[in-house]
Design a protein around this nucleic acid. Structure first.
Lengths: 200, 200, 200, 200
DNA sequence: GATGAATGAGGGTTCATTCAT
DNA sequence: CATGAATGAACCCTCATTCAT
């Protein structure tokens, strides 16, 4: 052990993380096929074989990034489901908060998001999983009579995922909106729709 | 040659269309990079150089397919905007019809849709154009007081595009819903949202 | 036979000459390998198979051009050797005239010259043949005591060919000199060299 | 390793030089277009991709050879111009020596010469540069009254280059003459021409 | 006399990946 | 921990040439 107390093997870990981070950038910008190992290692200041010290293949590092995205996302959604039954009034805020935290997550990890949520072949499954999760939540809230029973919650869940997908690209990644603001607008729209309510 | 004789030069046109159709299938299924010219021509019963009789490059045939999608889509949207001012009641139906015809178009050309609306680098622009178009329509309807003036129509347009994107994949391409049914459900949701209206 | 008295087959001859002329231009400008049959026929307004009506191959049309150059050149040199023994004084003029007519020929057929005298694989042989011819002439003039017997006529013949080669490109094809002027200068130099003669 | 150990990285350099040398041979013998990378690497005992470790393209290796020729040639001519003003008598010898060293250079690097001085598209420029250089030297000698002032030195320079070009092929590469012998004969001819001087 | 349609043969180039050190 | 050197496997593309009409 060195005098500075660096744990043995930390160099390797650092190298690996360096590669991962650069790879994320490259994959996010250029996509899987236009990204070359050669470019990644060059940017990291390594030689090609070094890459294979840490990853068994190009596919492997890519899927490691996808998984990383997936796990972080799972942590997020599982965290946001802790509080079970609260009073009715707070539901919209709770939904807004959840949504906002998803947007924030996407903002914090734009490269991972680009890869996992948009580019990768897994993206479809990941979105489906997100839709399923939302669907489940909605159903349970529907059963608690927060929402009317005739609503097709599966469809709404998909619409919500579609909204997230589209608005992340157009508003969030372009810095035209904040996570919180966007979440609020969406929830408002989802709750009340476009036709104005008659006010007595 | 008689009137029923084969039109002159039609062979070439047929060959080109054959290649286009097979290419659409391959690109839709495997994506741009996993699709090879060699496979396309093999499936079409041609040799490789024949491909270059009709297309200057792999990129060229791909962008031809993307353009074809774009043009068809443009025709659709320009057609659906003919009828200008109608009475209020029919607005929802008209929107539903428009939406339904988009879904029907996607159903009719699943390969082109996969390519132009999902895979291609142009997909982002195409969706943005669709959102812009919808936005425009919504604004005009908003100005005619069909919708309340406080709604953020840009956001709603993006949400609608996101809904289309997601539901086309999950419901339409899996044959779990029809164009018309899906359109109706979406419009219903968009108009009234999730919170039930108080009924006297 | 048509009313305009056009000989049967003249269309074919015209087509062939058209192709030859365009091919000469292309080969001269771009060289053998960068010239494509496709470009030649396109410029001539024909389709590719038409080419093979008149020439059996790309090599064939090229060597036809080379031969054409070679034959014209042979005509020239054989013509210029008719007059045998004349009085001594006129020899320099005769040589100058011969040289001038070669330059004139090169000026009149720049494309053929570029091909036959510079580009083609035959060029080496053609130049050697020219050198041999000149050598022969010089020898005969040497034997007639026009020139001193210790001169290495073979070397001089080669130098003359080299001079022709170089000056055709740098002076003639760039229009910086005329055939006659150039010929005169060369002959003058060849006869008297660089060291000034002592004059009493 | 030890002092006699193989220098680090020398393998790559050797491989590159091996490829360069074989390529020079191939290009010189067959010309640019009939030479294939596949043949070069096969002869060198490598696989095709190895070629691209050292050269970015076929064009690149070719122009590297041309440049190599050009640089060596430049070294030669710049070296031969050191001694400025000497007595008149030695001028012919000095010219002879210069010429001889050019011939010797061509003899030493026949492949490079074939490529750079005859085949390549740069050949024309290289010869022109050589002519310019010679022209310059001649002018300066003319101003020093070594040569009579009425001589067209530009033309003479071109003739000299033409002579070099032609005699290198016909006499040098065929081993019919030595560098020194050839140089001497040429200089002799250039100085005194063909017409014998009157001797009292 | 001419052409629409098609192909055989081959060439250059790229990239992920490995071996020996 | 790291790399210099090398390659297997493909892929896109071009061009002279031909066949049937």
């Amino acid at each position: 052990m060195g005098p500075r107390g660096r744990k043995k093997g930390s160099v390797g870990v650092e190298s690996k993380e360096c590669l991962l981070s650069i790879a994320a950038e490259e994959f996010a910008e250029k996509g899987y096929y236009k990204t070359t190992i050669s470019t990644i290692v060059k940017r990291a200041g390594f030689s090609q074989p070094t890459f294979y010290l840490y990853f068994t293949s190009k596919e492997h590092i890519y899927s490691e990034l996808v998984q990383s995205f997936q796990e972080k996302l799972k942590q997020l959604t599982s965290a946001s489901r802790l509080e079970p039954a609260l009073d009715t009034n707070s539901l919209p805020e709770r939904i807004t908060t959840s949504l906002s935290s998803i947007f924030q997550f996407f903002t914090d990890y734009p490269h991972l998001t680009k890869i996992g949520f948009y580019e990768s072949e897994e993206a479809t499954n990941i979105k489906q999983a997100m839709a399923d999760q939302i669907h489940e939540n909605l159903i349970s809230e529907q059963q608690n009579n927060y929402f009317s029973s005739h609503l097709n919650m599966e469809l709404i869940a998909q619409v919500l995922v579609g909204a997230i997908e589209r608005l992340t690209i157009t508003k969030l990644f372009s810095n035209e909106a904040t996570s919180a603001g966007l979440a609020k607008e969406i929830v408002d729209f989802f709750l009340y729709g476009m036709v104005p309510r008659e006010t007595k």
